[in-house]
Amino acid sequence: MKFYYLSTCSTCKRIMNEVELSENVIKQDIKTTCYTEKDLDEMCHLAGSYEALFNKRAQKYKALDLKNKNLTEEEIKQYILSDYTFLKRPVFVDNNVIFIGNSKKTVCDLKEYLDEFSSK
């Protein structure tokens, strides 16, 4: 189990406290230890696309005016690899399961998943 987050992000910190990650979960601060291309490819495989992992709220997304560009999956991948702020966060990965982002539903689903896992 791996949890990709940004230590300077208050939302990531809140979610980490809310879902009560066990000691078995590897917590990776993407600002200090960035994900690899292999990590990103694995996330994409589970998510179904790089676009699902793409943070469209990133300041660089707006600064580069990417909303007005028709980006390919490969271009999106390259943006995410070039700067950690382009990865939607947090991302929780466990075998064949992935949870992406901070929506209420995603956080609720992650809590349920972790509760089921800890009760086994």
Rank of each mutant, 00 (worst) to 15 (best):
F3E: 00
F3D: 00
Y4M: 07
Y5A: 03
L6V: 10
S7W: 08
C9T: 12
R14H: 15
R14W: 14
N17A: 10
N17L: 14
N17W: 11
E18H: 06
E18R: 12
E18G: 02
L21I: 05
L21Y: 05
S22N: 03
E23H: 13
N24G: 11
N24A: 14
V25P: 00
I26N: 03
I26M: 06
Q28A: 07
D29R: 06
I30L: 03
I30P: 00
K31A: 10
K31V: 09
K31M: 08
T32R: 12
T32E: 05
T33P: 00
C34E: 09
Y35C: 00
E37H: 02
K38N: 12
K38I: 15
L40Y: 04
D41W: 06
D41C: 09
E42S: 15
C44H: 08
C44L: 07
C44Y: 04
L46G: 07
A47G: 07
G48A: 07
S49R: 02
S49W: 01
Y50S: 01
E51I: 04
E51G: 03
A52H: 05
A52I: 08
A52L: 05
L53E: 01
L53G: 00
L53Q: 00
L53M: 10
F54G: 00
N55H: 04
N55R: 02
N55D: 05
K56P: 00
R57M: 09
R57H: 14
A58W: 11
A58C: 10
Q59L: 15
Q59W: 09
Q59F: 10
K62R: 14
K62F: 05
A63R: 10
A63P: 00
L64V: 04
D65C: 07
K67I: 13
K69S: 04
N70A: 06
E73R: 11
E75A: 09
I76Y: 05
K77V: 01
Q78Y: 08
Y79K: 04
Y79L: 15
I80R: 00
I80L: 05
L81E: 04
T85Y: 06
F86W: 10
L87K: 01
K88A: 04
P90I: 07
V93Q: 13
D94H: 15
N95Y: 06
N96A: 10
N96T: 06
N96F: 09
V97A: 09
V97N: 04
I98M: 07
F99P: 00
G101C: 11
N102I: 05
N102V: 04
S103R: 15
S103L: 13
K104A: 15
K105H: 09
V107A: 08
V107L: 13
C108G: 11
C108D: 14
L110M: 12
L110Y: 12
L110A: 08
K111P: 01
Y113N: 02
L114K: 01
D115T: 14
E116Q: 10
F117H: 13
S119A: 15
S119M: 15
K120N: 14
